[in-house]
Design a protein around this nucleic acid. Sequence first.
DNA 1: TAGTGGTCTAGACCACAAA
DNA 2: TTGTGGTCTAGACCACTAT
Lengths: 234, 234
Amino acid sequence: MKYYEFSEILKKNILDGKYLDTNKLPTEDSLIEQYGVTRYCVRNAINILIELGEVYSVQGSGMFIRKKRGYGYFNLSHTKGLTKELEGKQVDTIVISVETKIADENLASRMQCDIGTEIYYIVRIRNVDKEPLSVERTYYSKDVIGYIDKNIATDSLFGYIKEGLGLNLGLADKVVYADKLDLETANYLKLDEGDPAFVVEDDVYLSNGVLFNASKVYYNYKKTKFFGSKSVVG
Amino acid sequence: MKYYEFSEILKKNILDGKYLDTNKLPTEDSLIEQYGVTRYCVRNAINILIELGEVYSVQGSGMFIRKKRGYGYFNLSHTKGLTKELEGKQVDTIVISVETKIADENLASRMQCDIGTEIYYIVRIRNVDKEPLSVERTYYSKDVIGYIDKNIATDSLFGYIKEGLGLNLGLADKVVYADKLDLETANYLKLDEGDPAFVVEDDVYLSNGVLFNASKVYYNYKKTKFFGSKSVVG
DNA sequence: TAGTGGTCTAGACCACAAA
DNA sequence: TTGTGGTCTAGACCACTAT
């Protein structure tokens, strides 16, 4: 069994409350025995869970399950959009516009492409339970993605890249900061101009190093907190 | 050689420009040979560098060195304060106040301790090149830390916990979001009330599960961006 | 002292990128 | 096809927690 697969099993067990009595995972040895996997598999699977913030481990003591955060907290490590974090909520994507732009000097620099390259520019709003959560402005390289229309833009294009085009995603570069909302974005979010925004910039590269997606997402600061956790070393 | 130690060597090599010709690390096999380490050591060391955002790897192709970010970008994964990110800058810590509080219901809940427990409350400003970068409000469990005065509070207390008290740090829980500045914090940062703030909340636990440090840091939104990166899986 | 997670060894084979 | 990183095996010993 691949370790990613095993991490999914453990994740499901946790969600199903299988370990509620102790709030701990079984020991590594007993996982090895129960599931007939090797220690390599166990430890890699658990590293995934640690990165996801599901568990933490203490040498000599065990692997502890962390309490789940409520709605409004998003995992900073997730690169595949919010949909997974919002299970049980009604999530709607409203495509405001899909345009084709010709890269000028600025945009070419931003998208790390030649001047004159065609670039898609898409503006979307994410509603959760009918209320706006975020505004996304995304550039896609037309060379990579081919054709986009308003219907395609409603879904995430990541799956399409992989299955449809057979391309592999590589690195996702993330920058986050706070900024003041401009009037247009504020209106989309039903906030006021000058209010704070939590901004997430994402640059996604293919495994061959080509940047194919650069996005800037403005979140409603009243509705979103992001979390992560780390073992403290040293 | 321990893999952490090896990661420090590689980090130094990168900083010294040793791989500038190719912008890649040597292959795993050649690192094994050059340094007389095992593949286990190499791969673990490189995982550290990947988490730090120093390199990324592409299966079949190699391990690539990422371009360094300039000043004003902070690594979200770092749990040990800003000092390391600000080498070359003049960093001053100004301790505004050190108080002892008796935990009421709210504070006891925040610090996960009993009502009536003594808690230190410290307010500090971090200046970089004489200009305020952040305001930190930190609670320390007096049960854990013992005695703090204004001089001690100027330094980071993490080293003291480890070396002085022989305690091991465990988990650091981080929550980030945007918020509006209150008047007092705005004044410290030389910004206006209601301006955005990038807020980082950190809860640091000992390895025995005791929360000993809960902090809330308000960053000047004009001066700080935070970064992280991930390989995109699946 | 017993039990648990962390580090390490010395291999083998698989999957992908680039020529 | 070659070279590269990713996955995997089957162990051994170390370091820490808790009793």
